[in-house]
Design a protein around this nucleic acid. Structure first.
Lengths: 225, 225
DNA sequence: CGTTCGTCACGAACATCGTTCGTCACGAAC
DNA sequence: GTTCGTGACGAACGATGTTCGTGACGAACG
């Protein structure tokens, strides 16, 4: 891990690992997973590395830069699919489900992602793979390009929804349902009538629906052309 | 405006409007429109009302509560549609485009929306209207309920994208295109080959595509059933 | 008209945040 | 043995959200 010689004499300190960009990102990632985004402060990361917050700025471009690096690391762990025309639809589901789960595993990251589009090389790998699968499915290039965007929106949206249900899968549904039930009488007839449908399905069912609907929509467009 | 010119006591003050929840929300809304979410601090709002930040907490449940109230106010301004089976598709486009534009007009609000689902009565009016139009379109209730969710995701996503392009409509496309052009040779063949398609279309075209794709997808599902 | 009393704005204070920068100890080079 | 540059340290700055003791206002009351 360490380059060569560990400095034997940092006096009182018991030979602590040297600061590095990688070590910082890794520490941040650990905090993100265990405590969530709001706990991911520069001071908190520095404390985990037994140093001062100011020391991080040599290796990382502020908090924003750190978050970007962390996001990159997360995306890098997502396993891609080798496009196969025979299984393209299943591949989309697999890839996007893995993407969503990777975001869910790091609370707060999904929402942070939306602030700006992916620029890093790792994110482009992801886009390249998406395009590959969609094109393997026979989609028109323009449809595929735009569909990738639409699908990305569903992934981050589903990730945020899944985060909310993380503690208790049914907590949200029950809360919403309870909320609906004490609505002003007759003011929201449709919501009242279809409460069951509105809260129906778990996270996975809803996500599957969203992706299928988008894919069916693009296919309908292709067929019509 | 300097503290030194302040009247000795509130008695000498020229009858300033009393603090109220409405006044606070309105001031916050004005700041949000003109300066964006990151400038919307409790102190900034208090300053606009010529008072201290601490005074706001009597009327508003912290910053989070204030933001919720502001969001509610924004959603309240969105004009709804009287569901008409003959124009239902156009109605969806109108309603969602207005929703997107309302979010875009208040920078940062779209991203903040995603943190938790709408609970307020105003948001339910919106949902009720969406359901009404979709059902008027002949959709199955379960499909309509879930589709409303999928469409909501597209609205906030489009709003965030539109915010980025607010200053210069082409800035993003050009940046992305420039980014693509200096990619490692041959590492992203599809992105390289279809750069034109990836950056094609303005905000409205892309948004129209997203909505149409979702609607076509749900219709295909309905037809198949 | 004088007193009382409850409301409510004020603003100082606290904890935390991201960020900057002067200082200085370390270890290697001379 | 001396010099020197690298890089961590941590105090400090400005800004944030939030709490709370204080006190002034105006209405109610005698």
């Amino acid at each position: 891990m360490t380059p060569s010689t560990r400095p034997r004499s940092t006096r009182d300190r018991p030979a602590k690992a040297p600061l590095s960009r990688d070590a910082i990102v890794e520490a941040a990632l650990a905090i993100l997973e265990s405590e969530g985004l709001e706990s991911l402060s520069m001071r908190r990361v520095a404390a985990a590395l037994d140093t001062g917050a100011g020391s991080l700025y040599v290796y990382v471009e502020g908090r924003e830069g750190l978050l970007e690096a962390v996001f990159d690391r997360i995306v890098a762990t997502i396993k891609l699919e080798k496009p196969d025309a025979k299984r393209w639809r299943a591949q989309i589901h697999s890839l996007l489900t893995r993407s969503r789960d990777a975001l869910v595993a790091h609370p707060g990251m999904a929402a942070a992602t939306m602030v700006d589009p992916p620029r890093t090389e790792v994110s482009l790998r992801m886009l390249e793979n998406m395009l590959g699968i969609l094109l393997a499915g026979g989609l028109d290039p323009q449809d595929a390009a735009w569909a990738a965007d639409v699908l990305a929106a569903q992934v981050t949206y589903a990730a945020i929804e899944a985060e909310l249900r993380r503690t208790d899968p049914n907590a949200l549904a029950e809360e919403v349902e309870a909320n609906f039930s004490r609505l002003p009488e007759g003011k929201f007839p449709l919501i009242t009538a279809y409460t069951a449908q509105l809260v129906a399905g778990d996270v996975d069912e809803r996500f599957r629906f969203a992706i299928d609907v988008v894919l069916d929509g693009v296919l309908a467009r292709t067929a019509r052309r």
